[in-house]
Simulated assay, not measured.
Amino acid sequence: MAPDRPVNPDAPDGMWSIGELAQHAGVTVKTVRFYTDRGLLPETARSTGGHRRYGPGALDRLRLIRSLRTLDLPVPEVGRVLEHEAALEDVIAGQLAEIGPRLAALRWREAALHLLRDCTAEERAERLRLVGAVSAPPTTAALARFWRGVLPPRLPARLVSAILDGAVPQLPSDPTPSQVLTFARMHALATGPRPVTDFCRPVPRQPDRNCRPAVLYEGLGEAYDLVVADVRAGRPPAAGDALDAYVCAYAASRGMHDTPEFRRQLSHLLDRIADPVIARYWNLAAELSDPADPTFGAADDWLRAALDAEVAAAA
């Protein structure tokens, strides 16, 4: 930063007194003294009476200090920028990183306040309890912990990461009151009692030794990829490649073959082990997700409905 260096045309030595500098900069003498004492605005000399005198460049430097302070930069950060021009980019990046979470927290609080204002007295107590349990800004850490507890142990890390990416929704940067309520309900669900039943654990707390969960979840991911276009388009559940991949995932995970009898048994088993907590989670997740990006839960519901319809038709 190399500004012009104006001098004081009214002084024989071209220097500024502290009062003259403050007047031309549009600040108070107290402000000039503060920046001088902090080492941001060095004085050049002292008058015979001991008063501070400022040389050429002091006015531009003071204006620069004021501009940086207008951005709410702390005094030490202003000093860094004054000493090293290249530091400005790092300082700006740091400030943006700090402001982002603060803005997110304010947006969350604003939406939460609207949520509490625009409801009945009977609803307010429950909403206060739900919203009060969530940090501001909110994080999805509780949702990720929920799924890590639900998923079978010893799944490959890559597979767990892929499942979490699809199961944990991205939070909106500028939420509506209804989205705040939806996420608060998801948070309450995720921090409550956890489901303990799945295909590889048809009896609570008793895993099926013959089931290979990694094979199952790999195959389910492929089936969901195949069916997402049908779900997005609102097509009715039907037989096809997606359903075949879905059934094959379950069969392969137990070392079995896809047969009509296996499909019949699978349809009954999936109905029996369906968990209302998981179903509720997916319903809430759909409210936060982009309609063009169906959740795993929506894909699974479609495929299960297709399986049930096929089994019913065969019967």
Rank of each mutant, 00 (worst) to 15 (best):
S47M: 07
G49M: 09
H51T: 03
R52H: 08
R53T: 09
R53C: 05
Y54I: 12
Y54N: 02
Y54D: 02
G55Y: 13
G55L: 10
G55Q: 10
P56N: 08
A58N: 06
L59F: 02
L59M: 02
R61D: 10
R63Q: 12
R63S: 07
I65V: 15
R66S: 11
R66N: 07
S67L: 15
S67E: 14
S67D: 13
L68Q: 10
L68S: 13
R69Q: 13
T70Q: 15
T70I: 06
L71K: 03
L71F: 08
L71H: 08
L73Q: 00
L73Y: 11
P74M: 07
P74S: 10
E77Y: 02
V78G: 00
G79S: 05
G79F: 03
V81K: 04
V81L: 10
L82Y: 09
E83Y: 04
H84F: 05
E85V: 12
A86Y: 12
A86G: 08
L88S: 03
L88V: 09
D90K: 07
I92D: 02
I92E: 03
A93S: 13
L96I: 11
E98F: 05
I99V: 10
R102A: 06
L103Q: 13
A104L: 09
R107Q: 12
W108E: 11
E110K: 10
E110N: 10
E110L: 06
E110Q: 14
A111N: 00
A111D: 00
A112K: 01
A112M: 01
A112C: 02
A112N: 00
L113C: 04
L113A: 14
R117M: 06
D118E: 15
C119M: 01
C119F: 08
T120C: 01
T120A: 11
A121M: 06
E122C: 00
E123R: 13
E123I: 03
E123M: 08
A125D: 15
R127A: 09
R129V: 11
L130N: 01
V131L: 02
G132S: 03
G132A: 02
G132W: 01
A133V: 00
S135W: 03
A136R: 08
A136Y: 05
P137Q: 13
T139L: 02
T139R: 14
T140A: 13
A141V: 12
A141L: 14
A141Q: 15
A142R: 15
A142P: 03
L143A: 15
A144M: 04
W147K: 05
R148K: 06
R148P: 00
V150D: 08
L151F: 12
P152Y: 06
P153H: 12
